[in-house]
Design a protein around this nucleic acid. Structure first.
Lengths: 201, 201
DNA sequence: GTCTATAATCTGATAGAC
DNA sequence: GTCTATCAGATTATAGAC
């Protein structure tokens, strides 16, 4: 049940969002003109302004929509009580969610500086909420003694960075299947964080 | 002995490069005009063209210069024979080199899509050469049995991603000193790659 | 809701004076 | 080597016809 974003109901609205997503990801927000977006949709430039007040809102709606979807999907997941299981669950969730939304992921990381200050704060807050979810898992594991992480914030950022970077090189027709990629990163992350005690993971 | 890049000898040339580096990193290549760069330097826009044939060359020279410096610095390092020591050496080198060149690092990762195809191939080749250096260390360690990495290419990308991401959040006046950050990532990386055998690292 | 036309401004790059 | 002036075209956004 995908909720429509902002005022983009109807048919043309979503097509404008799709076109902007594709073009912003490929060429960058600043390098894409409203005429290009209109051309991709098949309308004239003026028609876009029936759906967005300006170009900035187009970018912001894309980024906020992406983060909203991410957090909504995360909340729908059942997080295991066991910290190790929760970590493995998160790794799989993160890879699967991001690999099918590569354009949006790219924009969410590359176009932050093109957001107005107020819009930046909103997106940054949502990103922070997502990071906090992983950090909470690491804290629970550290408290239970199954993870050995001197700084959970650093470990959180390290894990998310290495997982998100997959979206920049993974190809469905490449050397590795998605299952293989998941298995490898699962092993790397678990080994990176596991405690020195009995091998729980 | 910093070698001057391209035709940027003299005084104004380097100032143009510095201004472009700063502005491209802050606002993005496509969002910065030649007039803005000229204004930052304190000359008129036309004067820039005594130093660069066009805006694209300005970007390319920055990126190639950054990668050239990176590879030159890497070659000056003495790489230990022991794979574990070599890995630790690389982690420290990577963090130290990148943390003092945050603008250039940002540009090198964010503006690849704004390079012409030929220029992209050049920069991509240099980046690949750098990755190969780390991968060679991992392969040596895997062959010696001290590292447990099923896929050295994946592990290489994972390590570089988590290390480079430090540049996006580290602040000199922040919670952690650079030495602390180095120590933490050293521990994370070593643990992520170490073999199941006797704890060599 | 889409079109055409246009306002007002900015763009990269060049020519020629000094 | 820097300036001023300028070219030719693109930019976002708006106004009003249909």
């Amino acid at each position: 049940m995908a909720r429509t974003q902002g005022s983009f109901s109807g048919v043309t609205g979503p097509r404008i969002q799709d076109a902007a997503l594709k073009l912003f990801a490929r060429h960058g927000y600043a390098a894409v003109s409203m005429r290009q977006i209109a051309g991709e949709v098949g309308v004239q430039a003026g028609a876009l302004y029936n759906y967005t007040p300006d170009k900035q809102s187009l970018l912001f709606d894309l980024m906020r929509g992406h983060m909203d979807q991410l957090l909504a999907a995360l909340e729908r997941e059942d997080v295991p009580d066991d910290p190790c299981a929760a970590l493995r669950h998160f790794v799989r969730f993160h890879i699967r969610f991001h690999l099918v939304r590569r354009d949006a992921v790219f924009i969410a990381y590359m176009e932050l500086r093109n957001l107005s200050p107020e819009n930046f704060d909103v997106v940054e807050g949502l990103r922070r909420t997502y990071e906090d979810h992983l950090e909470a898992i690491l804290q629970r594991g550290a408290a239970a003694g199954v993870f050995d992480v001197p700084d959970t914030k650093v470990a959180t950022l390290a894990v998310i960075a290495m997982l998100t970077e997959i979206t920049t090189w993974y190809r469905a027709d490449g050397r590795l299947t998605q299952d293989e990629v998941e298995a490898q990163y699962l092993a790397l992350v678990c080994r990176m964080l596991r405690g020195a005690g009995p091998d729980a993971m």
